[in-house]
Amino acid sequence: MSNIAGKAYAMNVITPLKWLTTLRTRLIFWGAGKLPSTTLGLVTLSLIHYARWVILRPKDFPHLGPEQPKEDLQYCYMLFFSNFNGSWDQYVDSFSSTIPTGLDSFWYKNIKYTNSIPMLPFHRYITWNQIWTDNYYNAYPMASTNDVKSAQKVRQNLIDFARSTANATPDDFQRQYNKLLLSLQHDLSQMGLNPVVSLSASAVDRRLGKERRGVS
């Protein structure tokens, strides 16, 4: 059981809300989908690979046959799933400091939602409603979302550069090569293992037999 796969952390949060509230929340999500400026903070934060919010009405719980009892729920439930880089604290703290209003509108009027500031009650709210992941898979555990996006740019630049310099003289090549390096100056850092973000992460690493650079 681990919420961690390399540089990614899997968060699952499930919180109740009233049916009427879901209407407003859906409207906010709809607006956020239409207006890119709503998520500018999330984009700039650049800690998330993929995240999603799912609002479940009682009737949305799948019912697959008579052997399964029917759910009898009053509340709707909001499920939040995120794949983010960094530690739990970094993520929750960054969320709370950079996009408090966005966060509060997404969880608006969920039962006993605390608002994201002050932070300690918000920490407790998330911890209380979080479910641990039993098995987590990440196709690129040594890459953060920054790395994935930067890698796409590197590849496209290399393909274009290789084509455009196929018949270049050495001097022309050098000029274009220097331009390439300049345009990729923020994309040429090496990737590797994640730092140990928590003591449970270090325990997972030990189980996987991961040797850390510099560990003597």
Partner: peptide
């Protein structure tokens, strides 16, 4: 039959 529909999807990657 088991799929639940996502209300809001944020793609911070590619």
């Amino acid at each position: 039959k088991c799929e639940i529909k996502t209300t809001f999807y944020f793609n911070g990657s590619t």
